[in-house]
């Protein structure tokens, strides 16, 4: 299990990286390499050129400004895990990143790599889906920004074209004190989820839902938002019965199936985990409201 030969390039700037990407045939971007290099070792991916963006200036970092979170594509998953900014402003991402692989893979793996790889079960794309993230992509003609809904096109396929590089993720932060939850079921700790659910909720002083976002991974070729469920939540106080009713809606999704799990099991998990995630997000949101009031 040794990779096929390739030429190795270490651009120092984004422009250099883009130039190399444009001029080299069958080139691949190497970021954290935690999925790519495994596939290269199996020789299911055999690039002729590998462009290592780990030395490109300005591609990593976490900043919060004007209610907006910006994460450079080369930011390590580890840095998300240990970032107080993330923990404070985007707790859903912090909850999710703890479920991504293992300490040793998070030390190298990047958020951009996770998004570009676009595994349908992956946690970080699901967080981006729940947060309506914007994905910044640089290409030969400059920069463009793609809403997440238009980013992940189908199974392991994104809007990033062959001559483009994913450079950053931007998230409009929810108000402090929002409810959040990431629940997933994986066979073992750190495995890709069979089904994962990201939930975000805002509630008013009467604990009625004012804003909701629910996104599932592992059920479709890409993260799937559930707008019907989200609108069904608005204006409701989430007691057990209400949550069970809306979770049932999640269980009616059409899902993928493979040797890891059948369609009906995925639907079942979608229902169970949506219920759990909504319950937890609601409890957190209500608690924050209660704290703010006292």
């Amino acid at each position: 299990m040794k990779p096929a030969p390739f030429a190795y390039h270490v651009p120092r700037s984004l422009d250099d990286a883009l130039r190399q990407l444009a001029s080299l045939d069958n080139a691949k971007i190497l970021a954290g390499g935690q999925s790519l290099v495994a596939m290269m070792n199996f020789r299911v991916v055999t690039p002729d050129h590998l462009i290592d963006i780990n030395s490109v200036e300005g591609l990593s970092g976490i900043t919060v400004e004007d209610g907006r979170l910006r994460i450079g594509a080369a930011t390590r998953q580890r840095d998300l895990e240990f970032s107080t900014e993330i923990a404070w402003h985007c707790p859903l991402m912090r909850a999710a990143v703890l479920l991504v692989g293992h300490r040793q893979t998070r030390n190298r793996g990047t958020i951009g790599g996770s998004l570009a790889h676009a595994d349908p079960s992956a946690e970080l794309p699901n967080v981006c889906a729940a947060h309506d993230a914007r994905i910044e992509i640089h290409g030969p003609d400059g920069v463009r920004t793609v809403p997440f809904a238009a980013f992940n096109r189908t199974f392991m396929t994104t809007a990033v074209e062959a001559d483009e590089i994913l450079t950053a993720v931007e998230i409009d932060l929810w108000a402090p004190g929002h409810g959040y939850s990431f629940h997933e079921f994986a066979r073992r700790h750190g495995d890709f989820a069979i089904v994962g659910v990201a939930a975000l909720l805002d509630v008013d002083d009467g604990h009625r839902v004012t804003r909701a976002s629910l996104s599932l991974c592992g059920v479709d070729a890409m993260p799937r938002r559930l707008p019907a469920v989200e609108s069904a939540l608005i204006g409701r106080v989430l007691d057990d019965g209400t949550i069970d009713d809306v979770a049932d809606m999640a269980g009616d999704l059409e899902t993928i199936e493979d040797h890891h799990a059948s369609k009906s099991y995925r639907q079942h998990l979608a229902r169970i985990l949506s219920g759990r995630a909504l319950r937890e997000a609601n409890a957190r949101a209500c608690l924050q409201k209660a704290r703010a009031a006292s």
Partner: peptide, 22 residues
């Protein structure tokens, strides 16, 4: 050699890293 078993883990600049994926 696909990053799961961890037998190849080393510290790279002080951080545990799969040396089979680097």
């Amino acid at each position: 050699e696909h990053g799961v078993c961890g037998a190849c883990t080393i510290l790279l600049n002080g951080l545990s890293t799969r040396s089979c994926l680097t």
